[in-house]
């Protein structure tokens, strides 16, 4: 339920903003010059705002499409990311957004048409290999679909651009709009998973793992390419059994032919970001666990990381024939 909407003066007349204002007639509407006046000031409490985030309607100006770090790749072509939203409905304790943004308010950039133009500009520069576009870097691609209408707009846009691949990264089970469309071979719906017991403890507000598996299976049955994102990989009491159960459950529900790719990512925080997040949640078991500073990161030890990656990769390859597995190794920023 959105109680407060901040709106940039500049987008007050934008049809997408008008529709949202009409949808929440009881919300208090607060005009602002630029969204950054609300979103960026120092000394805001991300944790307290997360209790009742507001919606900010804004225009994205400049840097609409950015090059993705090469290690994010899920294919051979160049990678890009774009963010129609900042922040997420869910509250996962390992999420870097809580350390990156000062505010937990949801920012929705309503000028989708400018994103589309920027994507087309990027595509004209492209070569023979498809370009990969990631939409779930600063938000969950599907979780606020009922608000944003992102999927409804961008899936048809990418469907007629075979030189591009769109990855929708999500933990959401809001798949109705996707099921209502004809599947596009170049739109990958990538679900993030951690084992059920870990997810229940640290992915606050996110759908249960079983629900996510069912949503992925439904999309696969409808013909959508599905991605499996086991990122971050978590070390906890019983992790082997947890990952084995998770992967067996995925394999039982989703045929290997429907899997576009899997990617594995170790748990790593840039050091300063970790300090900020841990200060916010000093009582959290994951953040208080055996994490240590390695170079510019806070992470598990190299040995533990290798053990996790090795085990999970082996289980995935055993469960899904010929699965393409990518390894996400974040760099310090």
């Amino acid at each position: 339920m959105i109680e407060t909407i901040y709106i940039e003066d500049d987008v007050e007349a934008h049809p997408r903003a008008r529709r949202l204002l009409d949808r929440f007639p009881a919300a208090r509407v607060i005009p602002c010059g630029r969204y950054t006046e609300v979103f960026n000031p120092a000394a805001q409490s991300f944790r307290l705002q997360k209790e009742n985030p507001a919606l900010i309607l804004a225009r994205k100006r400049g840097n609409l499409v950015l090059e993705a770090p090469p290690e994010l790749g899920i294919g051979e072509g160049p990678g890009f990311y774009f963010s129609h939203m900042l922040n997420c409905l869910y509250d996962c304790r390992y999420c870097f957004l809580q350390g990156m943004f000062r505010s937990a308010h949801y920012v929705l950039f309503v000028n989708f048409e400018d994103f589309e133009a920027a994507i087309d500009d990027t595509l004209t520069d492209g070569g023979e290999k498809p370009s990969y576009f990631f939409s779930g870097y600063d938000c969950d691609s599907l979780a606020l679909e009922s608000l944003s209408g992102f999927v409804e707009r961008f899936v048809p846009f990418f469907a007629v651009r075979p030189g591009a691949v769109l990855e929708l990264r999500t933990k959401s089970v809001a798949i109705r709009s996707l099921l209502a469309m004809t599947p596009s071979p170049n739109v990958v719906v990538a679900f993030s998973f951690t084992p059920a017991e870990a997810a229940a403890a640290i992915e606050h507000g996110a759908p249960r793992v079983g629900q996510r598996v069912r949503a992925a299976a439904e999309l696969a049955a409808a013909g959508w390419p599905v991605g499996l994102r086991l990122d971050p990989l978590l070390w906890y009491d019983g992790w082997r059994a947890g990952y084995a159960t998770l992967i067996d459950g995925l394999a039982a529900a989703i045929p290997a032919a429907a899997i576009h790719s899997a990617s594995l990512g170790p748990l790593r925080f840039p050091s300063k970001m970790f300090q900020r997040i841990h200060r916010m949640y000093p009582e959290d078991a994951l953040l208080s666990g055996p994490l240590a500073r390695r170079d510019d990161f806070v992470s598990y030890s190299a040995a533990r990381e290798a053990e996790l990656v090795g085990f999970v990769e082996e289980r995935l390859r055993r469960a899904f024939d010929d699965i393409a597995v990518f390894f996400f190794t974040p760099r310090a920023t």
């Binding site: 059920a196 870990a198 079983g210 070390w235 906890y236 009491d237 019983g238 078991a285 666990g289």
Partner: peptide, 10 residues
């Protein structure tokens, strides 16, 4: 050496 413990999942 102490691994975090999470309860049964959903």
């Amino acid at each position: 050496g102490v691994a975090p413990t999470f309860g049964p999942g959903g």
